[in-house]
Every structure is written in structure tokens, then in C-alpha cells.
């Protein structure tokens, strides 16, 4: 199987869906002639031209809203936010228009749009560029939220997101764009709402999404090698819809859970899952559900310090050992 970068896996997904469906159009700042700020859309403008790959001015409110309006007429716009942090300047369009229009029209209008871009800290770009808004977006009924940890997942989830008839918020990660992974040459799709057991285990379940799933995987390796603890790693892949069954089944098997989350702790994705676990498998738990999240302050710039603000394998191991 070819080993390709996460960004190229996304690129393949776009190219394939542009070819498959004449209504798919990519838009955003620098996505066309510049090849994308992070080169995720590299070569697509050259290949598909002005109609299918469109550079926009720096006007997130207007171009995201434009994509939403066009999707109401049947286009399938795939909109890049150079950073998901910039969602704050188009929050009204995403939350009120993409998120509510189907409901408020009694189901008469739907909005098959994908809004995508990186949502991560850890790159020393300061607090304004380091937000992880997946929890905020997942709290809006009407929106779907997806987060990809690997190249394989990125491609399969993106293709599904583009074909989905609801608005999908797709979380990528600049720290992962250059990571290589195996991606098959033949076409595949990954359904939304299905978690992926990235590593099987018996003693404890580590639950995460996005890059935190890789942190959890590394922790699981070390727990096995150094502490003889068999950790299962569940990558949510899709946050809303959420694969509740997979989470509950794993915790019912291992009886312990540590949630790993690059969100801030207050109402982070992991808070929702912790609530679910205590409600639905209280009797199966042998220990409190613990969380490892980003440290609860704005993202610090200082390059030597910022990594400590995000979950790392040692944090996860410490929490796991405290309940194993």
C-alpha cells in the first residue's frame, strides 16, 4: 500500500470527488493559485481550473456564507478555513445559517457543505491561531463534526463528508499534514459515526480524537512495554454523530477509561464522553473516568513551553497508572 502524507490523502479525496460530482467546488483563501497555505490543495487548481478551485478574498464571513447559500441551491462546496480558529469571524454563518436552516425551514432546505481546515495548537502561533473548536461546533444540533488522525482516515472521512447531505465540520491538524500513512489505491469510504479501535487492549480504554489519538497510541505502547498494561485505544473519528456503542463496549470490557483530548477541559469533547460513561456504564467501572486535556489557559506562544500545554504520552501514562 502506498505510504503518503496526510495532506496528500486529503488532496486525493478532493480530486476524486471533484471528478465524481460536477457540483463539488473547493473554495478558500489561497487554495487555488498558491496551492493552499499548507499545500493541502496543491495542484488541484492547475488540474481542474478556475471553476472548481476558487481563491477567495480574506472574508471568512462572506465566503463561508456564500458557500452555504450555494449549497442550498445544490452545490457541494468544500470550504477551507486556513485555520479553524478563524471560524470566530464567520460564527454566525456556520452556527445560524449552516446549522439551523434545515430545522427552521421544517426540512425544506438542506446544506451539503464541508467546512474544513486545521484545528490544533502546538505550533507556536499564539492563542488566536490555536483553537480547537470541535466541541463548540458539536454542541450545535444540525452540524456534524469529524476529526481525522491519520492519512487513511483523512481521505476516507473526507470523501464521505463531501457526499453527506448535512453540513460537516472537518477538523485537520497542521502537525499531522506531513505525517505519512498507508492509503490504498482503490477507492474507500469511512462512515461518519463509526469509531476506530486503533489498538485492542484488555485493561484500560484510552479514548481520543485527532492528534490526541496518536498520543494515546504512543501511551498505549509504553504502558504495554514498561508497565505490562494492555490499553485499548479508541479514535472517535466522528464526534457528532458519535459512536457511543463502540465506546461503551470497550469500557464495559476494560472497566477503566482515560480520555485524551486536545480540547480545553471545560465542556470539551471528553467532558461529554465522561458524562456518558458515568451514566451508562457506572456499574462496569472499576475506577473514576479520568481526563487528560489541554491545559486550561489560552495557548502559550513560547516554543519550548507550548508542547507542555497539550496532552503528551507521559500525562496519559500517569493518569492510567493512577487507576490501574
Amino acid at each position: 500500500m502506498p505510504l503518503i502524507e496526510y495532506r496528500d490523502a486529503l488532496n486525493q479525496a478532493f480530486a476524486e470527488e471533484i471528478e465524481r460530482d460536477p457540483n463539488v467546488v473547493l473554495m478558500g483563501e489561497e487554495v487555488a493559485q498558491y496551492d493552499g497555505a499548507y499545500k493541502v490543495t496543491k495542484g488541484l487548481w492547475k488540474k481542474f481550473g478556475d471553476k472548481r478551485v476558487v481563491d477567495t478574498p480574506i472574508s471568512e464571513a462572506a465566503f463561508i456564507g456564500m458557500g452555504i447559500g450555494a449549497s442550498m441551491l445544490g452545490l457541494r462546496p468544500v470550504m477551507e478555513l486556513m485555520f479553524w480558529s478563524f471560524a470566530t469571524v464567520t460564527w454566525d454563518q456556520i452556527v445560524n445559517n449552516a446549522g439551523q436552516i434545515r430545522y427552521m425551514s421544517g426540512g425544506l432546505i438542506n446544506c451539503p457543505i464541508v467546512i474544513r481546515g486545521p484545528a490544533n495548537g502546538g505550533t507556536n502561533v499564539g492563542a488566536t491561531h490555536s483553537h480547537t473548536p470541535e466541541n463548540m461546533l458539536a454542541s450545535v444540533p444540525g452540524l456534524k463534526v469529524v476529526s481525522a488522525a491519520t492519512a487513511y482516515d483523512a481521505k476516507g472521512l473526507m470523501k464521505t463528508a463531501i457526499r453527506d447531505n448535512d453540513p460537516v465540520m472537518f477538523m485537520e491538524n497542521t502537525l499531522l499534514y506531513g505525517e505519512k500513512g498507508e492509503v490504498p489505491e482503490e477507492e474507500y469510504l469511512i462512515p461518519l459515526g463509526k469509531a476506530d479501535i486503533k489498538r485492542e487492549g484488555r485493561d484500560i480504554t484510552l479514548i481520543a480524537h485527532g492528534r490526541a489519538a496518536l498520543t494515546a497510541l504512543r501511551a498505549a505502547e509504553l504502558l504495554a512495554a514498561e508497565h505490562d498494561i494492555s490499553a485499548e485505544v479508541i479514535d472517535l473519528r466522528s464526534i457528532r454523530p458519535l459512536d457511543e456503542e463502540a465506546i461503551l463496549a470497550s469500557v464495559r470490557k476494560t472497566h477503566r477509561a482515560v480520555l485524551v483530548d486536545e480540547n480545553k477541559p471545560f465542556c470539551g469533547v471528553s467532558a461529554q464522553i465522561a458524562s456518558m460513561l458515568q451514566e451508562k456504564c457506572f456499574d462496569d467501572l472499576d475506577a473514576p473516568v479520568l481526563r487528560v486535556t489541554a491545559l486550561d489557559a489560552p495557548a502559550i506562544y513560547s516554543p519550548r513551553i507550548e508542547p507542555k500545554q497539550l496532552p503528551n504520552p507521559q500525562d496519559v501514562i500517569r493518569k492510567a497508572l493512577s487507576i490501574c
Binding site: 463561508i64 456564507g65 456564500m66 442550498m72 445559517n97
Partner: peptide, 17 residues
């Protein structure tokens, strides 16, 4: 004012089609 980008999008969709 929230509908003004949506109106733009309707026009975009018309032209695209």
C-alpha cells in the same frame, strides 16, 4: 445582515450552474 452572504451564494450557485 446574516442573509447577505447567503444571497451572494445563491447568485454564485446560479452562475455556477
Amino acid at each position: 445582515g446574516g442573509q447577505t452572504p447567503l444571497g451572494l451564494g445563491l447568485a454564485y450557485g446560479l452562475k455556477y450552474k
